[in-house]
Amino acid sequence: NQASVVANQLIPINTALTLVMMRAEVVTPMGIPAVDIPRLVSMQVNRAVPLGTTLMPDMVKGYA
């Protein structure tokens, strides 16, 4: 099973992602693959992402 990107903290809307905000976890359903974490750094979320939420492609501006 491939790990997905999960929020390590509450990420407010329009926040630029940093490594500290994300962790890799095997979850269902799968979200953004953990291998993409370096690519996500400095991209912004388009909604508030609660702690423990799996990041989906439509939550990150410019990802999809």
Rank of each mutant, 00 (worst) to 15 (best):
51 L>D: 10
25 E>P: 01
14 N>I: 02
23 R>Q: 04
12 P>G: 13
2 Q>V: 14
20 V>W: 13
50 P>N: 14
50 P>A: 09
39 R>W: 11
51 L>A: 13
59 M>Y: 13
26 V>F: 06
36 D>M: 05
63 Y>V: 03
63 Y>C: 04
42 S>N: 06
34 A>Q: 11
39 R>F: 14
19 L>R: 05
4 S>D: 01
17 L>F: 02
33 P>S: 15
17 L>H: 00
49 V>D: 01
21 M>H: 06
15 T>H: 09
60 V>I: 13
32 I>D: 01
53 T>H: 10
36 D>G: 04
38 P>L: 07
55 L>D: 00
54 T>W: 02
22 M>Y: 02
47 R>H: 14
64 A>Y: 03
54 T>H: 03
10 L>R: 11
61 K>T: 11
2 Q>H: 15
60 V>M: 06
45 V>R: 00
59 M>V: 08
34 A>N: 06
58 D>L: 09
46 N>D: 09
42 S>G: 11
32 I>R: 00
7 A>H: 01
19 L>N: 04
31 G>A: 03
39 R>H: 06
24 A>E: 11
64 A>Q: 15
44 Q>V: 12
45 V>I: 08
9 Q>D: 15
46 N>P: 03
24 A>V: 11
52 G>S: 13
37 I>F: 04
43 M>K: 09
28 T>Q: 14
25 E>Y: 04
48 A>Y: 10
4 S>H: 01
9 Q>T: 11
15 T>G: 07
26 V>R: 03
10 L>V: 13
24 A>K: 08
53 T>S: 07
5 V>D: 01
7 A>C: 06
64 A>I: 15
22 M>P: 00
26 V>M: 14
46 N>Q: 12
41 V>P: 03
30 M>Q: 11
6 V>N: 02
64 A>E: 08
38 P>G: 10
30 M>R: 03
7 A>R: 02
32 I>A: 03
40 L>P: 00
10 L>D: 13
24 A>M: 07
21 M>I: 04
18 T>G: 04
57 P>Y: 14
34 A>E: 15
60 V>K: 00
58 D>K: 09
56 M>F: 06
7 A>K: 01
7 A>W: 02
6 V>T: 08
28 T>V: 09
58 D>M: 14
7 A>Q: 01
31 G>P: 00
18 T>E: 04
33 P>N: 14
7 A>E: 01
8 N>I: 07
18 T>N: 03
10 L>G: 09
47 R>V: 09
6 V>H: 02
36 D>S: 07
40 L>C: 04
36 D>V: 04
4 S>M: 02
15 T>Q: 10
54 T>A: 07
30 M>C: 15
38 P>H: 13
5 V>Y: 01
63 Y>N: 05
51 L>Q: 09
31 G>V: 02
16 A>Y: 05
22 M>C: 03
50 P>I: 10
43 M>E: 04
10 L>E: 13
35 V>N: 13
15 T>I: 07
39 R>Y: 14
30 M>P: 09
39 R>T: 13
64 A>S: 15
12 P>Q: 12
50 P>W: 14
42 S>C: 15
28 T>A: 10
33 P>R: 04
60 V>Y: 01
45 V>S: 04
43 M>G: 04
13 I>H: 12
38 P>S: 12
63 Y>I: 04
5 V>W: 02
48 A>I: 11
7 A>S: 09
22 M>G: 00
28 T>Y: 06
34 A>H: 10
49 V>N: 01
25 E>W: 05
58 D>P: 08
47 R>G: 10
21 M>K: 03
61 K>C: 08
63 Y>W: 13
13 I>K: 07
25 E>H: 06
44 Q>H: 07
20 V>M: 13
2 Q>L: 09
12 P>T: 10
40 L>Y: 02
53 T>I: 12
55 L>V: 13
16 A>T: 07
60 V>P: 01
64 A>G: 15
37 I>K: 04
36 D>R: 04
16 A>H: 08
42 S>E: 09
16 A>E: 05
58 D>E: 14
29 P>R: 03
10 L>S: 11
5 V>R: 01
14 N>P: 02
21 M>E: 02
55 L>T: 01
51 L>C: 15
51 L>V: 10
18 T>F: 07
10 L>A: 06
56 M>T: 11
61 K>A: 12
26 V>S: 15
23 R>N: 04
47 R>Q: 14
53 T>Q: 14
16 A>N: 05
53 T>R: 11
27 V>W: 02
15 T>A: 09
63 Y>E: 04
16 A>Q: 14
18 T>P: 00
53 T>N: 14
35 V>P: 07
51 L>K: 11
62 G>V: 05
34 A>S: 12
63 Y>F: 12
60 V>E: 02
20 V>E: 06
46 N>M: 12
64 A>D: 13
51 L>Y: 13
3 A>H: 13
24 A>Q: 15
14 N>S: 08
36 D>N: 08
9 Q>W: 11
52 G>R: 06
56 M>Q: 14
62 G>C: 12
40 L>T: 01
43 M>T: 06
59 M>A: 11
56 M>W: 07
55 L>I: 15
8 N>C: 05
52 G>H: 11
30 M>A: 06
33 P>G: 13
19 L>P: 06
28 T>D: 15
37 I>D: 00
60 V>F: 05
28 T>K: 03
50 P>E: 14
18 T>W: 03
49 V>C: 04
48 A>P: 07
25 E>M: 06
54 T>F: 02
63 Y>D: 03
11 I>E: 01
47 R>T: 09
58 D>A: 09
10 L>K: 07
54 T>N: 02
34 A>P: 06
5 V>E: 01
32 I>W: 02
34 A>K: 04
6 V>F: 02
31 G>M: 02
48 A>S: 08
5 V>H: 01
18 T>M: 08
15 T>C: 05
4 S>Q: 02
26 V>D: 15
52 G>Y: 08
44 Q>W: 12
44 Q>R: 10
34 A>R: 03
43 M>C: 05
58 D>Y: 10
48 A>F: 09
12 P>D: 13
33 P>V: 05
54 T>M: 04
42 S>K: 08
51 L>F: 13
59 M>H: 08
27 V>E: 03
57 P>R: 06
62 G>A: 14
3 A>V: 08
26 V>C: 15
1 N>T: 15
12 P>R: 08
10 L>C: 15
52 G>N: 12
31 G>H: 01
16 A>F: 12
59 M>G: 03
51 L>M: 15
63 Y>Q: 04
62 G>H: 13
6 V>Y: 03
49 V>W: 02
20 V>G: 08
46 N>R: 11
59 M>W: 13
2 Q>G: 15
36 D>C: 06
51 L>T: 12
48 A>G: 09
44 Q>S: 15
38 P>N: 08
13 I>S: 12
29 P>H: 07
37 I>V: 11
43 M>L: 12
15 T>R: 10
5 V>S: 04
33 P>H: 15
8 N>T: 14
52 G>K: 10
33 P>K: 08
40 L>A: 01
45 V>W: 02
5 V>I: 13
62 G>P: 08
8 N>S: 15
20 V>K: 07
53 T>M: 14
7 A>G: 03
12 P>E: 10
63 Y>P: 03
63 Y>T: 04
52 G>E: 12
21 M>A: 04
49 V>Y: 02
36 D>A: 10
3 A>E: 15
49 V>A: 05
23 R>L: 05
44 Q>A: 08
10 L>F: 10
22 M>A: 00
30 M>Y: 14
57 P>T: 05
50 P>Q: 06
29 P>C: 15
37 I>S: 04
34 A>F: 10
1 N>F: 15
55 L>P: 01
26 V>L: 07
62 G>Y: 12
15 T>S: 06
13 I>T: 13
2 Q>A: 15
49 V>F: 02
3 A>N: 13
21 M>T: 03
45 V>E: 00
39 R>A: 09
41 V>K: 06
60 V>L: 09
36 D>L: 05
24 A>I: 14
10 L>P: 08
61 K>N: 13
40 L>M: 12
47 R>F: 10
41 V>S: 03
62 G>K: 11
61 K>R: 11
49 V>S: 02
19 L>A: 08
53 T>L: 15
18 T>D: 03
38 P>C: 09
62 G>N: 14
28 T>L: 04
27 V>A: 09
34 A>T: 06
53 T>A: 15
32 I>C: 04
13 I>Q: 12
25 E>I: 03
17 L>K: 00
27 V>G: 03
11 I>R: 00
59 M>P: 00
37 I>N: 01
4 S>W: 02
55 L>F: 10
55 L>A: 00
54 T>R: 04
40 L>E: 00
28 T>E: 15
28 T>H: 06
16 A>D: 04
42 S>R: 14
12 P>Y: 09
37 I>W: 02
15 T>L: 04
46 N>G: 14
57 P>N: 09
21 M>F: 07
6 V>Q: 04
13 I>N: 08
21 M>N: 05
21 M>W: 02
44 Q>C: 09
63 Y>S: 03
4 S>A: 05
39 R>E: 04
27 V>Y: 03
2 Q>T: 13
46 N>E: 12
